[in-house]
Design a protein around this nucleic acid. Structure first.
Lengths: 224, 224
DNA sequence: AATAGTCTGTTGCATTTGCAACAAACATAT
DNA sequence: ATATGTTTGTTGCAAATGCAACAGACTATT
């Protein structure tokens, strides 16, 4: 346990998994769940595909990238997990013990690992936070489900241009502005949209030329 | 309430949402959740996109198709829900009140609607099944999350042939046989893979010619 | 300053795919 | 029996996309 430098108030108010759990309880709860925080450097691999998983991760600092690779070595970027969000929760809740994905640090980051299955398997059900934690998890899984639906909405488009537009539109809605930055490089965006990087650049160029969007590096603007 | 012809034992043992809930409890629980069963004819629209949703559905008979449509009118098939499985659960758990999808009856079918949000909002938490139901739901959402991951795996392939192969492979694994039937027509499969029907037929023909697969109507065989 | 490495954009070319139109097989209704 | 509609397969053509190779801008290291 290395929680000397953890601020329970910040955790309780920012991590949605801990909604309605008082910061007083948090210490003992984290202990019960075998919490461990680990630091990783930028680009370090946090979890390799097929590694065993027994914990879910909470991003305390930085952000991480969830990706997979097919038998041809083609990388597919599934999503980016930002500060205070959690990852691998579906796997531990569905008892999937081998990771189907690779997880990489996008920046220097700090991850708290929670042996969440304990809450179901061995935890004394009398503890105060037990049912609250499960209810929060149910809610988070439902939301993540909805987010995956959005990703499916992008990939279900038949042309690259429509995929790009759907991706940019979702970002614009999320940022509540027609001007916004995206968290992915060109290469990463191509792997996220499952397209060729050159084709992506070409299509972005055409769209700029036609006055539909404007962009420079990671800064985008929807004009139309 | 129209549960005269419901067999609680069958429900309790087949519907995963009711795992570890005794059939004795089921009656009062269903009442508490405002259960209603409704019948639909083949091809009838069960729920239209943008309709309000306050209940999750349990398929008691038949099967239903979840799809969406973009602004161009292009249909995208998201998934098929089979007997005893549930649908719309992520929306009610994430408080999404307008349906992002259209739900259609694939056969004549019978659906039980449950006002699940009651369990969180107004239910007396002392009731026996409360926490069990939430834990089951957490588990189901995690599994569905994993299933969506598989769909993403299909759509993330860059060529139609790879999408087809991934789809057939997942079906083969699910059915534990190299020979199997698929639940989708050609038209539906095209909309599921988000491809053109003619292109799908062409590619299937090529693959048969090359000796990779064999098929006739809905019956497929992986040869390689 | 020089070097190596990374990221983005560009372009020619071959392949894949979407689109449209048509044909054959089959089912359904009158 | 006829007519109508649905499903599947086929094919020519145009457009989109992947692939490969290269160039310029930028960064980090020595």
């Amino acid at each position: 346990m290395e929680m000397e430098n953890l601020n329970f108030n910040i955790l309780a108010s920012n991590v949605k998994l801990f909604t309605n759990i008082s910061s007083d309880c948090l210490g003992s709860m984290l202990q019960c769940l075998g919490a461990k925080t680990v630091s990783y450097r930028k680009n370090e691999i946090i979890l390799m595909i097929d590694d065993s998983i027994e914990s879910l991760g909470i991003v305390l600092d930085g952000s991480v990238l969830i990706s997979s690779e097919d038998f041809m070595g083609i990388r597919s970027i599934i999503t980016v997990i930002e500060k205070y969000d959690i990852f691998a929760e579906a796997y531990v809740c569905a008892n999937i013990t081998k990771s189907p994905v690779t997880i990489t640090a996008l920046d220097n980051c700090r991850i708290m690992w929670l042996k969440f299955p304990r809450i179901i398997q061995t935890c004394n059900k009398a503890c105060q936070f037990h049912s609250r934690l499960i209810e929060n998890m149910m809610n988070l899984l439902a939301i993540k489900n909805y987010q995956m639906h959005q990703k499916l909405e992008i990939l279900s488009k038949r042309t690259l241009r429509e995929k790009i537009l759907t991706y940019l539109h979702l970002n614009s809605v999320k940022m509540k502005s027609k001007t916004f930055n995206i968290p992915l490089s060109r290469n990463e965006l191509a792997d996220f949209l499952n397209a060729d990087r050159a084709a992506l650049s070409r299509e972005l160029g055409k769209m700029k030329e036609e006055g539909i969007i404007d962009f420079s590096l990671n800064s985008f603007k929807i004009l139309h």
